[in-house]
Computed example of a mutant assay.
Amino acid sequence: MSNSSDFSDPVYKEISLTNGYINRMSRDELRAKLAEFKLDTRGVKDVLKKRLKNYYKKEKLMQKQPIAADNYYDYICIIDFEATCEEGNHPEFTHEIIEFPIVLLNTRTLEIEDTFQQYVKPEINLQLSDFCINLTGISQDLVDKADEFPKVLQRAVDWMKQKELGSKYSYSILTDGSWDMSKFLNIQCRVSRLKYPSFAKKWINIRKSYGNFYKVPRNQTKLSSMLEKLGMDYDGRPHSGLDDSKNIARIAIRMLQDGCELRVNERLHGGLLLTVSSSTPIEGAPVPQMPRFR
């Protein structure tokens, strides 16, 4: 354990005093100070405070002991599935994935390096509801021409392997909430008679990370609210899987810039959704493999 976590060190006293000073600043004072350090000045007051506190904290700790960048994921894969749905989904409705996007975020450059996107043909409800078409912008024609899920998953796995994820580079999956993995992928694997893929068993739920980092209640962590609080507009078409994933990536980039260490906080075990403790060491996901058929 490094001595940087010894809170009796005088540097933590300095950080605490600085935090108190920042808490008393007005929004205009915060923005002026952030501009002085060439930091982003967008966002609500609490976001600006957090950004400035983290900047000072990082500066103070860097003077004390440089932080090694080797213990963080090289890449984050943002995944936001679109699935079949009906207006007022009744509990027994089976959601099937109809769009599979991945946005590859390089955590060193903080840039989107590449994207993957495929539409998926449903196997149970072949006909999309009008509600689903209007919500997602995915037409009946697009899914009719698409391949079924196992072929699309194989392509996603091949794409991730080609990027050397899990072999040369460490990575983690990131989602907007728990549903993408614990519900949509879980249901889809049962429909397609596939075992659940091991590389998707742990992920970063950005809503949880955002709420904890910016001290925001969980009901204020919808995608639109997170963007708004950070002073950003939605870019693209809402409920397009790829556009949603890109916007989630923009939030992740801002959080990393603000000093948040996005880390795995949820996992699926025996079909159950579990929380991963923040004290668990950072460990990348395994090399993506196509799961076996059941």
Rank of each mutant, 00 (worst) to 15 (best):
S2V: 05
S5W: 09
S5L: 13
D6Q: 03
K13P: 00
N23I: 00
M25R: 11
D28H: 04
L30M: 06
A32V: 02
K38W: 00
D40F: 04
R42A: 10
V47A: 11
L48W: 09
L48R: 05
K60H: 06
M62H: 12
K64L: 14
P66R: 04
I67W: 09
I79L: 15
F81N: 07
T84C: 06
T84S: 13
C85G: 07
E86P: 01
E87D: 11
T94Y: 11
I97G: 06
I98M: 04
I98A: 01
L104E: 05
L104S: 03
L105A: 06
E113V: 08
E123G: 01
D130M: 00
I133L: 00
G137Y: 05
D144S: 14
K145V: 00
A146M: 03
R155Q: 15
K163E: 08
D176N: 13
G177Q: 06
F184G: 05
A200E: 02
I204F: 09
N205I: 02
N205T: 08
R207F: 00
F213Y: 15
F213T: 10
Y214G: 10
P217W: 08
P217S: 13
T221R: 07
L223Q: 15
L227P: 05
D235M: 08
G236V: 00
G236T: 03
D243K: 04
D244T: 04
I251D: 05
I253L: 10
R254H: 08
M255L: 11
M255S: 10
L256Q: 07
D258S: 05
E261K: 13
V264N: 09
L268Y: 07
H269K: 15
S277L: 10
T280N: 11
P281C: 09
I282R: 13
V287Q: 06
V287N: 01
R292T: 11
